[in-house]
Each structure stands twice: as structure tokens, then as C-alpha cells.
Amino acid sequence: MFTKDIISWIKQSTKSTKFYIFVTLISFSLVIPLVLRDSLSIRVLTLMAIFTIYASSWNLLASSGQGSLGHAAFLGVGGFTSALLALNLGIPPIIGIFIGGVVSAGIGFLIGLTCVRLKAWFLGMVTFGFSIIAETLVSQFDDFTHGILGFRTAPLASSGLPFYYLAVLIATLCIAIIYYIMKSKMGLAFRAIHQNQSESKMIGINTAKYKLYAFAISTFFAGLAGGLYAHFLRYIRVEIFTPANSFEPLMMSVIGGLGTIEGPIIGSIILVAIDSYLPNIDKFLPIVHGIFVGPYLRLLGLGIFLVIVVIFLPKGVSSLLRKMYNYFFTDTKKANNIERK
């Protein structure tokens, strides 16, 4: 039954351009490290893959109308769980990252219970508060977590290409699952809640239930991303809970395109690339009044870029790409027809 479904799905999808774009992107992501080769690029690509999972998990939660401002809590919980399991019990990280995801989802579920009644800003602040509480607890129980100084995490795969391919594999699986969820009835419910909670309640959607589902699923992927992140950096410390890590997925999702599948992917590629490659211009920048302006000019430029993007592309870069896609791949006659109608 199941295999039949898959075969028919493949048959169907080979007809659509989207499928080919998907295949092209996957093969591109597999080939590009072989072209770039330098260890910085492979590191950056791996970070992109990990942040794709993290940003997508945040985006899934935001799709259900719950914009979290404390997702770093789940990144950290996933990372610490997996790293500590490997350190203390010798559990292999490849299993540990999924346990980390499950633990994070469990905590996410409990936090979700306090959040389902809350509206947007209240929810944002409560999740932010939980990330602060998580940080305090991890540094308070330092004897157990070793979080204050940090510690060396076990290797998940040998660094470089093997880790990159593993990260791409896991990221692809996660994106596929999130895509499937968003296409399913559950995804429909999420979007309905996002658009209008009281109306979706009226048409019989159990909003509390679906919001909890969104919380648990999202925090599972965030925890998984945290595990990958911790084992990729080979180091974890309490700074993983920093608010910057909470705002990162928001920025990635918004710049890429909120509520879309491709948005967080594009966003994490753009932001990680800027963060990692822009410092290359440092050597051309001067010292002014005893201050090396490089980092400050870079960050200032990033800020201006972000504001300009969101002003001119309020639906993110993906909306621009969609326009380009329609421009190139849609029959102009057909488009004109639609316009006329």
C-alpha cells in the first residue's frame, strides 16, 4: 500500500516543475562542497543546513500563529541533552540527537500548555522568559551540566564532508516531514488558527490541541537542530541560550518568507552566508579614531540591508523568487489570460 503511494506520488511529481527544482537543489547541495573545497565553505554550508532545520522549526510554530521569542531554549536543551548523554552514558550522538529532540519536545509540550491561552506578544514574552529560566538552571546546576565553562562534545561524524552530508540528509528529511505536515489537515488547521483563531474555533477546529501539536513538533526539530549544532561545533556552553539565538530563526524566516517552506531555507542561507563571508572585507577597512571600524560597519550594513529587504519585500526573498519563477516558467499567454479575466 505504502510503496504504491510513494510510486504514484513520484510518478505524479515528475510531471511538475517544482519536483525538478527540488531535485536540482538537492544535487546542487551535494555537489557544491566538492566545488568550493575550502574548509571554511564546508563549515559554512554545514551551518546553513543546521540553521535550515532550526529556522524551519520556528517557522512551523509561527505558522500556527505562535511566534516564539525563546526558541534558543529548545536549541540549548536539545544540544545539552545529546552532549551530556554522550559524555556521561556514552550514548552515540546519532541516537543522542533524537533523544535530545524528544526531550526538547517534551519540555516544549509542557511550555506549550502554559502558552495555548496566550496571544501573540504574551506568548513571545513567556517563551523568552523560559529561555532565561533555562539559562539560569543550566548555569546553576553546573556540576551536572558543565555549562558555565562549557565542554567538548562527542563527534557525531568526522568533521568536514561526512558531517556536511549527514547534516544535509537530516535537514532534507526534516524539511520533507515539515512539508508533509504543512500539506496535511494539521497544516491546514495551523494556518486557519494563524489567520483567525476565534473563527477556526467556530468551524470546529480544536485550537488548543493543534497549537500544542505545533509546539511539540516545532520544539522536536529545534532540539534536533541543537544536537546537531552542539556536535558540529564540538563544544557546548550556556551561551547557546543567548537571546541572539532566539531571534536568529525569526530573522531567517522573515527574510526568506514567513509561513513558506522555502523561506527559512533561503533565509538561513542568506544570513549564515553574510555572517561568515562578509568579514572577508575587513582587511580593506580602516582604523578611525583608534577604532577598527570593520565589524561595526559590517553590522551596520547588515542592519540596513535587513530593514530594506523587509520594507521592499514584506513577504521575504522567496516572494521575489516566486515572481521570477512565474515570470520564467509560466506561459505568458496564460498569465495574460488570467489577468484579463
Binding site: 521569542l69 531571534f247 530573522m251 514567513l258 551596520l300 547588515l302 535587513l306 520594507i311
Partner: peptide
Amino acid sequence: KLNEIFVSLGLILI
């Protein structure tokens, strides 16, 4: 609404 947060994060950097 999240675009507004995004703009304010950009403004913080600026």
C-alpha cells in the same frame, strides 16, 4: 506583525 519585530531587530544593529 513579525515583520515589525524584524525591522526593530535591524534597527538595533543600525
